[in-house]
Amino acid sequence: MGNTGHGETFLFWVGSIISILGALGLIFSKKIVHAALCLCTVMLCLAFFYMAQGAVFLGVVQIVVYTGAVMMLFLFVLMLIGIESQDSLVETIRGQRWLAVPFVLAFGFVLIGVYAHANLPEFVGTDAANAKGGGNVQSLALLLFSRYFWAFEVSSAVLITSATGAMVLTHRERTVPRKSQREISIERFERWGKGEKVSLTGLPNPGVYAQHNAVDTPALLPDGSPSEASVNATLRGRDTVRGFRPLPLPGARRNGAAVASRGDAGNEEVSQ
């Protein structure tokens, strides 16, 4: 079984190009969410490769565990600690990035050279091994619960330990009692009484319009200018606040133009 069929050849070349592009995207994309999407692409391609190579169970597990659970966890943590956190360009070790490229390239060439020079045996294929137990899943189960029984037990211990560890690491003991809404309000009025600039009523909601109805659209103040405070500070920091362009008022061409120009000025203010 020296060669694969035409279908698998086609799958391999398409999938390998996509997965290498995905890996490059993972390394070089600026936004972390894009990097996560690229990694998802690579993992899906690998799942197809597993299935093409007779490891059907592993292919399904790859999709369920990696692209399902693990990437979900990554995106969840991204959401928690902020998407806007950019890579710092300061190098702690000087010239590390530029040195890393030739070293990694050399490593890759060594790895490929080892494969190229290794005396690899002819491919046997997994069909016979799969058929022995009556299917891929059954054969894997036979191995897992006989030869690899001990490793299987230990892996369950690893999973329990990691779940406990995650809970311990992210747990935070509350040292002061949680403030009630009433206490927060009283505190706010006290600060206002001392002359601090506090909004007593709470911050305004984002705008609700026929065109956009989203948290990144600022509400309009009575004079027509967008309100900074109505948009989440994270969105303002990430500079993704949607501008608002008011529609021209019917029957008032001159005033409408004035309103529009004022609206544009407001947009610039928001986007800054």
């Binding site: 290498i20 390394i27 690579v42 590390q96 990035r97 890393a100 490229v101 990694v104 490929i112």
Partner: peptide, 13 residues
């Protein structure tokens, strides 16, 4: 091998 190398490159840079 190529994917492993790209992953290592990403870890380093």
């Amino acid at each position: 091998a190529i994917l492993f190398t790209l992953g290592a490159l990403g870890v380093l840079i």
